[in-house]
């Protein structure tokens, strides 16, 4: 019993992210019955999985103490490059494999720049994003776009197995795999070590450079894959298609309880973050909120979500135990939100 208690306590951060998501969902369901319908839930799962793909690599990168800003451009790259290859006559499956491989290589370059050249992650990935953007602009300017997205990608994004969308199942598979790798593999443990303190990790015999490079490589591959699926869903490609995902991929990770300083976090937390963001963006239009209102609420929820995942749940727990009496020592500062 005591162990169960400590297990839960150790995961309160993640649990509070799911709780936030559930609360938002219930609000939506109460407000409009259609919100909890199977088709709407499916729709939200599909949207959430795009965020989830982009945020998987981001989770690993952030746990290792880095940051990946190439996300929006790699999302766009996935779809545009796939369509281009397909238009050139390449069969869809090898084309997808090739595109994802190129994404991985771009991620690899990020990793090499960050580890070997010791360029700050923000700067390195920002510059790489710029180069990818330049490539996409060049492709768009030098030849006509509007190529068809191959049918395989379209099917992947819109088919179902029974009541479940294929993308969501793929996402679940990735989540299970990422969860196991992070908590049960040597790579996962070394990843947390690198993020917590890279000097200690290095002196403890961890191949810090390799771990870091791997995280960026995985991030590059996963984000590009997300771009392929997204293009399949939208049915067409354009340069700004990845725009929203810079923000959401990072927000999902930190709402999920990871520290932006590295060394903590989990992919199941990120899944909660992705779901929360998606539920929120489907919920707000129901309240006739304009785009502007949506953005404001988005930001507020992110701040609340991060606060809940880091210190808020402890504070709320304390309040709860005191029978909701205000604690006497509660002053302006709520302590250290380390996320």
């Amino acid at each position: 019993m005591k162990q169960v208690g400590s297990w839960i306590r150790g995961r309160l951060g993640v649990a509070s992210s799911y709780a936030l998501c559930a609360v938002l969902f219930v609000i939506g369901a109460i407000h409009s019955p259609g919100f909890a319908s199977a088709s709407n839930i499916r729709q939200m799962l599909v949207f959430a999985s795009f965020v989830g793909f982009a945020a998987l690599g981001q989770t690993l990168v952030i746990i290792a103490g880095g940051l990946d800003l190439t996300v929006p451009w790699l999302m766009a790259f996935g779809g545009i490059e796939l369509s281009r290859l397909a238009a050139g006559g390449m069969p869809a499956v090898p084309a997808i494999a090739l595109v994802v491989a190129i994404g991985a290589i771009i991620g690899l370059i990020n990793g090499v720049g960050v580890t070997w050249l010791r360029i700050a992650p923000i700067v390195m990935t920002l510059a790489m994003g710029g180069l990818v953007q330049a490539f996409l602009l060049a492709v768009g300017e030098l030849q006509s776009t509007g190529d068809q997205v191959p049918a395989v990608a379209v099917h992947l994004a819109s088919n179902r197995v029974g009541p479940f969308p294929v993308v969501a199942i793929v996402w679940l598979g990735f989540a299970v795999a990422a969860g196991i790798v992070l908590s049960r593999s040597a790579f996962g443990r070394r990843l947390y070590a690198v993020g917590a303190n890279d000097t200690v990790a290095w002196l403890s015999g961890v191949n810090v450079a390799l771990i870091r490079i791997l995280t960026y490589t995985i991030s590059g591959a996963m984000t590009t894959f997300g771009g392929v699926v997204l293009a399949g869903y939208v049915g067409t490609t354009y340069l700004d298609i990845g725009g929203p995902y810079l923000f959401t991929s990072i927000a999902a990770v930190i709402i999920g309880g990871a520290s932006i300083l590295g060394g903590s976090g989990s992919y199941w937390g990120t899944v909660a973050g992705a779901l929360t963001l998606t539920v929120l963006s489907s919920l707000l239009p129901l309240f006739q909120l304009s785009n502007a209102g949506l953005e404001i609420v988005y930001g507020v929820v992110i701040l609340i979500g991060v606060w809940l995942a880091s210190t808020g749940h402890r504070l709320l727990g304390r309040l709860w135990r005191r029978g909701l009496a205000l604690p006497d020592n509660m002053q302006g500062g709520a302590g250290d939100v380390s996320a």
Binding site: S185, R190, Y192
Partner: peptide, 29 residues
Amino acid sequence: QREGLFLGHSVQSNITISGLGSFVRHGLL
């Protein structure tokens, strides 16, 4: 504190970090 320990991690994770490779069975710890 700066070179020897992951202060936020458990004592056990600190002790075993250098030898993780030897606990791997079927790819997992």
